[in-house]
Amino acid sequence: MIGADDIPVIPRGVRMQFDRVRDRWVLLAPERTVALDEIGRAILSEIDGARSFGQITARLAATYAAPEDQIAEDSRGFLGTLIDRRFLEVK
């Protein structure tokens, strides 16, 4: 489970891209594609390899004026799924 001090990193070979055919954002990895919604894209857009998970959720809470604990819970599950599937790493 990703912790507040963990720093999520998008690994080499994985990138976020707008898919014009499907008219939505996707996360591309070698031979694998995941479709994102706007909230998922917003979470991944905060990942810069320097910000911790806690910093990311604090920024999202400010942007969306939503409870930080709810954002942390949703984001933890979202990023955890990507980590399990090797679309994301933590350092």
């Binding site: 996707v26 694998r32 919604d37 909230i39 999202l60 939503a66 949703d74 979202f78 799924t81």
Partner: peptide, 24 residues
């Protein structure tokens, strides 16, 4: 507004729900 994010894996033209309100 903030909503629970969703992840759907696209495989062989099919979409598989990985995470989100309907993922169980």
């Amino acid at each position: 507004a903030w909503t629970k994010p969703t992840l759907r894996e696209i495989e062989c033209g099919m979409e598989i729900n990985m995470y989100g309100p309907d993922s169980g």
